[in-house]
């Protein structure tokens, strides 16, 4: 138990001495580097093994698969080079899917950011039932995509659904095929449901960020005669910058990977109006057993996500670390 070098040398000393020892050394403990290496290995191995097996290996296989024509049976030996990529990138269903993914990325930022900010600022005010409101606003985020999707699917049923009923109620004509059945409206409708589902995360993160804004700043601006809106505009929102940028990052990654909600609401239809890269690759893989095509699509999906993350990290998030440091 106590055969540790540093512990033994520090043992006769008082806490004061320990503190001095600690400040003198960069590493607080110099007990055998091998022992430390062993401990680190011991702690880290289970997690790394699990990730190697179920994350790294499948991704490497997807890359390998993307260079073969393979239907899932027999040996993978029909090497086709870049042909799967060629087919995927010239398949209009897939290029449309990329457009759909990016539409969702941009709409999410444009719509959910101001909306989430507005609700977070609202809930940060001292109003009655604030605690209940905070809880309620987060409820959709906790529900499974599938469950939210099934409920919205019912709400959006053409004619018999609540949404159509409400629209007829105020004297307008709902689309004949329903909101999810009309190609021009389907993607927008999916986006509305996604906003309903994910706004809670934005609100939660923004509220967390707002709580770290020092109270004194509000008080000072209040004394200077600033209005509520001026205070938010000049103090709260700028200080929320890092939180907003983190949220935007999470939101972008989520939009690029979008699958569940689309699969439940439209399955990618009507007429491929709502396909995403993920629904495309699942369709190719499990629907048509074009494993090579699916592999190429997943590599493209990953590369797009990775480049986006890298660019965002370099151009947007780095500002945070620079200004802080």
């Amino acid at each position: 138990m106590s055969n540790e070098g540093a512990a033994a040398t520090a043992a006769p000393a008082h806490a004061e001495v320990t503190r001095r020892v600690k400040t003198r050394r960069v590493t607080p403990r110099q007990d055998g580097p091998w022992r430390q290496r062993l401990e680190i290995t011991l702690f880290v191995t289970p997690a790394l093994t699990l990730m190697a097996l179920f994350v790294v290996w499948p991704i490497a296989s997807a890359v390998r698969m993307s260079f073969y024509r393979w239907k899932g049976f027999g040996p993978m030996d029909d090497f086709v080079g870049w042909r799967n990529y060629d087919r995927v990138l010239h398949d209009q269903v897939f290029t449309d899917a990329i457009v759909h993914n990016f539409t969702i990325v941009i709409l999410s930022i444009l719509v959910q950011l101001p909306l989430g900010l507005a609700v977070a600022l609202l809930l940060n005010r001292k109003i009655r039932f604030r605690g209940v409101l905070r809880t309620v606003v987060f409820v959709p985020y906790v529900l499974a995509e599938v469950i939210a999707g099934v409920v919205w699917f019912q709400l959006l049923q053409p004619e018999s659904g609540v949404v159509d009923g409400l629209i007829s109620g105020i004297g307008l004509t709902p689309p004949e095929q329903g909101f999810l059945g009309t190609p021009n409206l389907a993607l927008g409708t999916v986006f509305v449901v996604l906003t309903w589902k994910y706004l809670g995360l934005a609100i939660l993160l923004f509220m967390a960020g707002l709580q770290s804004v020092p109270e004194e700043l509000y008080e000072a601006s209040q004394l200077d005669g600033a209005s509520w809106w001026q205070t938010q505009r000049r103090i709260a929102i700028p200080l929320l910058g890092p939180t907003i940028r983190t949220w935007a990052f999470l939101s972008m990654i989520g939009s690029i990977q979008l699958f569940d909600m689309v699969w439940i609401l439209t399955g990618g239809g009507p007429a491929n109006a709502t396909t995403t890269m993920a629904t495309y690759l699942i369709n190719q893989g499990t629907g048509r057993y074009n494993y090579g095509i699916a592999g190429a699509a997943s590599v493209v999906l990953f590369v797009i996500g990775f480049v986006m993350a890298l660019a965002y990290q370099t151009f947007v998030l780095r500002r945070d670390t620079q200004t802080e440091g």
């Binding site: 990730m51 097996l53 179920f54 994350v55 290996w57 499948p58 991704i59 296989s61 997807a62 698969m65 899932g72 990654i253 690029i256 990977q257 699958f259 993920a278 690759l281 699942i282 893989g285 499990t286 494993y291 699916a294 592999g295 997943s298 590599v299 999906l301 990953f302 996500g305 990775f306 993350a309």
Partner: peptide, 16 residues
């Protein structure tokens, strides 16, 4: 690892 969605690797994962 945060950047790797399950969707990317889902088919090899299924095979594995």
């Amino acid at each position: 690892g945060l950047l790797f969605p399950a969707a990317v690797a889902i088919i090899p994962l299924f095979i594995l």
